[in-house]
Amino acid sequence: MTDRGASIKFGLAALAVFVLMAWVFGWFPPMWEWLKTRNWGLLDQQIINGVQLGSIYALIALGYTMVYGVLRLINFAHGEVYMVGAFIAYYIAEVWFEKNSINIWLLLTMMIFGSMIVCAALGVTIERIAYRPLRNAPRISILITAIGVSLFLQQSLLLVFRVSPPPSITEQVNPFDRIKVDWPLFGELTFAGGQLAMFGMSIVLMIVLWWFVTRTKTGRAMRAVSHDFSTAALMGIDVNKVVTITFIIGSALAGAAAMMNATALGTPLKTDYGLLPGVKAFVAAVLGGIGNIPGAVLGGFLMGVAELMVVWAGYDMYRDAVAFVILIFVLLFKPTGLLGSTAVEKA
């Protein structure tokens, strides 16, 4: 491993060469032209939207990063837990909205808690059945098990879809869209009510999580297990209980994110609903330094903003690729992520 000074020097040198090349080959005039043609008026709006999207990524990334912190496991089934959360929210909405007598706020509360509870139960079940028997097995086998579980959930959902097609009633259910908040300070900046509520709710959830992890006894146990699994067990911490709680919290956050995404953004429900958000959130967790809770939030927001900046720049096609490009560049210069510990991991 080279030291950090060398990598910074290397990075600066690469940057200098790039700028020189750009100047030599005359990229600057076209670049200025390109910059002039962008829609600068939309930039602030897109950043706001990016932060809102990032809050979803951050919530999912928290589940990834917490599970990784405790078990050193990439939980590939997490994206599918997210998908099931959206599924539950949709079906709760379909079953109850038909009756039309239900208060919309009550319905929304039911949706978010319903999907959180079902996701938590699902996450715990997956951990019990698929991960716990393999606790001492090679890590790659647990990874394959996680992939198997994720495929199983996807394909089972496809089976259900064949019988009853996915509902699409978000426009009726979402009451937030009637609210539009203008922010006079910045002129034309508007917030869709749904996105604002989504953002607020995810911030609340993150603060609650932060309080839980840093201020409660269970949270301290969780940090201890994450620091050193076997020593924590020796010190009398019930490791299995901590792992279960980790899965409950992570999956419930994914469920909340799914419900908010489904109602506020109205993404249509498909079997690959959880695939790309899941992978992007995982990338966000790695970007922030996997196993690190503030890192996951930071990474999630960065991903969201970067994605919508690419959309703003007019490269809609590449919005899914930008997450990975940023990740590769960050990891090349900081191999343990932005806030990750510098300890060398032994694979």
Binding site: M1, V283, Y318, A321, F324, P335, K346, A347
Partner: peptide, 28 residues
């Protein structure tokens, strides 16, 4: 090349990301 600096899960996610980048570029 990145495998020189990265190991374990970090390398895994970079390879995964590379796969996605290739797919997205071809899609475009």
């Amino acid at each position: 090349l990145p495998s020189l600096r990265l190991r374990g899960d970090y390398l895994a996610v970079v390879t995964l990301g590379f796969g996605e980048i290739v797919r997205i570029i071809i899609q475009a």
